[in-house]
Design a protein around this nucleic acid. Structure first.
Lengths: 178, 178
DNA sequence: CTTGCCATGTAACCGGTTACATGATTTT
DNA sequence: AAAATCATGTAACCGGTTACATGGCAAG
């Protein structure tokens, strides 16, 4: 049940329409909780019904017309209690690790190319994160808590990509020429 | 579309019944592709229908009776081609990172306890992996390829847990007393 | 002969994914 | 006025989750 809270967070940062949310998900919150525009519209409807958000009054409400949403006090309460809520981490699901395990049974033919492809993807994502870090979090400390928290989140993304890059590099070396 | 291939791999390692598979998932393949017994029975049905596996003939087939499955040649082909197949990594989904991002907007009250809980969980998982590594992969190299691949998979799990342990430790330090 | 466990399932639901539909606005 | 783009949606599907049902078998 994380998507509604992802949306509440995004709307708190800045009231937005569905499409704007979709775009911001693509380059920010979506880095660790992605969503398509269909999901977002569906969820906005539910959140409005629940009284957690409301559509800002539009001059002429109509289909195909932009609708801006903002968070209501009830939504703020919901998000605040959710932050303190406890939830187990979902078990890992990696089809790449699974593939490697299968390769141990049926041979690793063709696996190398896939590892190289993933390495490039993770390296690219890492580079993207590092650019954001340099832009949004230049040296200078200490910082106010909100900034520290946002930086920690980004750090998580960075270190996770670094893990993949290192593991894939190691795996390719270990696999040897095929 | 990974579950069927996880099952094929497990059945190649050793022909099993549905419940046996469920148990083996809980302590091996399930570390990176978990499944409940309902999923497994459903998938076994599909795989049998597709001609990828077959139930070994039982003396008295009946409901509530154990059914052993084995992989058929078609299943082996399917798994082999799947290993070489290319598939993008699913985008990361971490409700913990999301929670921290929300905390940057509404305050981090109650977050510390959750971080500590996750730290303990990941530390426990890491310890479990390390025991398995010591048991199944004692020093001595070089090794045949299948063993190298299985060890790489386990290494992935280990390094991933290490990442979480380190990041959570860092986050707790950075968060400071609350 | 009841309790508990082994083993195989069915049913309902839910979030995420993919494909498509529709209206409004801007560009050419 | 046709084409492209912005913006909001509907519908169908699919894998994973939760709750429950059913039968066989062994222990006390």
């Amino acid at each position: 049940m994380s998507l509604p809270h992802a949306i509440l967070t995004a709307l708190l940062e800045k009231p937005s329409s569905g499409l704007e949310l979709t775009r911001r998900f693509d380059k920010s919150i979506g880095y660790f909780w992605s969503a398509t525009h269909q999901q977002i519209y569906r969820e906005l409807g539910k959140l409005e019904q629940a009284g957690h958000i409301r559509a800002l009054p539009a001059p002429v409400p109509a289909r195909g017309q932009k609708k801006e949403y903002e968070v209501l006090p009830a939504g703020l309460v919901e998000l605040t209690t959710w932050v303190a809520r406890s939830e187990d981490p979902k078990p890992l699901r990696s089809s790449l690790l699974l593939r490697m395990r299968a390769a141990a049974m049926v041979g690793s033919t063709g696996l190398r190319a896939e590892l190289e492809r993933h390495l490039a993807l993770h390296q690219a994502q890492l580079d993207e994160y590092l650019v954001i870090e340099a832009r949004d979090f230049p040296a200078a400390r200490p910082r106010p808590e909100p900034d520290r928290l946002r930086h920690l989140v980004l750090r998580g993304g960075i270190d996770l990509e670094r893990f993949w890059v290192e593991w894939l590099t190691h795996a390719l070396a270990e696999l040897g020429g095929e």
